[in-house]
Simulated scan of single mutants.
Amino acid sequence: MEQQPSSSSVPTEFSPLAQQEPPKNMGDLSKSYDRATIFFTRWGAHILDHILLACFLLGLLSLGISIAKDANALYFFILAAIILCSYYVLLEGLTGYTIGKFTFRIIAVNAEGQPPGLWKSFIRSLIRLFEANAFLLGGLPAGISVLASDKRQRLGDLAANTYVVKVKDLNNVSKKQTTVLAVVFSSVAVLSIISMIFGIIDLASKTPTEEIFYSKDKKLQITAPSDWSKDSALHDEADIAISNRISEKYLLILSDAKQNLDSSFTLQDYADFVEANIEDSVENVSVDKPIRTVVNNQVAIQFNAKGEGDGVKIAYIVTVFETPTHFYQIMAWTEQKRFDSLKQELQKVSASFREVK
């Protein structure tokens, strides 16, 4: 009689999770876990992933600042966003793991106990943006869902029909792939930490530089730190308009030709005119006593004002001065809560105004 080959001689398709034995019911397996235990395990994996991503982002931030003035900066940041979004979609979709999950020995699987695949992983990751976002309710919806759902699933799991289970409870997990992933994930974690270290060193060592901004006719200029940029959206008629919208600091220069004003119009009259405009356009405005300063080698009048615009509390530094042909107003502003820390910079930038000879 011809001998039949043993089952061990039949080749099996390589898979992250071998299927030599029938997989356990993932829903029942997930349901068997203690709520608090699986919650804190998933929470720990989530925190570790965020720490590593933050380290990576810090390194990218340093590189991004270095090339911010380059024409390819936009493409760089788009690439960075794609890499970050792919972290969860690709890793969980193809392996079931993130670095955090691998470290805490839990894995995302489909109903058959296999990695969920890219589509299910995309669904999980899309909903993660809302339910597990540290900046949106602190990830509270995901935690509540894991604790309250019958099978310990967050909202993304419910939508994608996936489960997070303990690796030790799965049948015949591939030791070879576990070793490979351990090496790869360890390398990625080390590179993220190195990226953070070099990012901190690079950011700390950067010497602030200054940039000169010109009016359209190149007759006026103002000097500001290099983190400022032109911002024509601030005012349609501004000679120069610059800002740093991330740091909420803004400045614009407006001019009025003397030939269009009464010949008796003085600098003090112009200062009163500018102050009246602010009082008309800003709610709950208060104006400090003006002081005398020097701008463009000319005597200038400067005053601080505070008020509200569109529900935002704003603080202004307003400087007015004259040349033989024009009156000028330099208006610099920021949020009131930032004013004390930015006041000196706003004053320095305002004082840097020059006419181009």
Rank of each mutant, 00 (worst) to 15 (best):
L57M: 14
S62G: 09
S62L: 00
T41N: 11
L63N: 10
A45E: 06
R35Q: 11
L61G: 13
A54G: 11
L57P: 03
I38A: 13
L58V: 12
D49M: 13
L48K: 00
L60E: 04
I51W: 06
S62A: 12
W43D: 07
R35L: 09
H50M: 13
L53K: 01
T41D: 00
L63T: 12
H46E: 13
C55T: 09
I51L: 15
W43Y: 11
L53M: 13
L58M: 06
L58W: 05
C55D: 04
I47D: 05
G64F: 02
L52Q: 08
W43R: 07
T37Q: 08
L53E: 06
I51V: 15
I51A: 10
I47K: 11
F40G: 01
H46W: 15
F56V: 08
G44S: 14
F40T: 12
L61E: 07
L57N: 12
R42P: 00
R35H: 05
L48C: 01
T37A: 04
D34N: 13
A36T: 07
D34R: 02
L52R: 11
L63K: 07
L60A: 07
A54L: 14
L60T: 05
A45M: 10
L63E: 01
D34W: 02
A54R: 09
L52K: 07
T41E: 04
D49K: 06
G59K: 08
H46L: 15
F39A: 06
A54I: 11
L52A: 10
A54V: 03
L57V: 11
R42F: 02
F39Q: 03
R42M: 07
T41G: 04
L60M: 06
R35M: 07
L63P: 00
G44T: 10
T37D: 03
F56N: 09
D34P: 04
A54F: 13
T41L: 04
A36L: 05
D49G: 13
S62H: 08
L48M: 07
H46K: 14
W43Q: 14
L61W: 03
L63Q: 09
G59V: 11
G44V: 13
F40M: 10
L60K: 01
I38W: 09
I38M: 12
L60D: 04
H46A: 15
L53Q: 14
H46G: 15
G64Y: 03
D49T: 12
G64C: 01
F39M: 06
R35C: 04
L52H: 07
D34A: 07
D34E: 12
D34Q: 12
R35T: 13
F39C: 00
L57A: 02
S62K: 02
F40D: 05
G44A: 15
L53T: 15
L48E: 02
F56L: 10
L60P: 00
I47S: 13
R42T: 00
D49P: 12
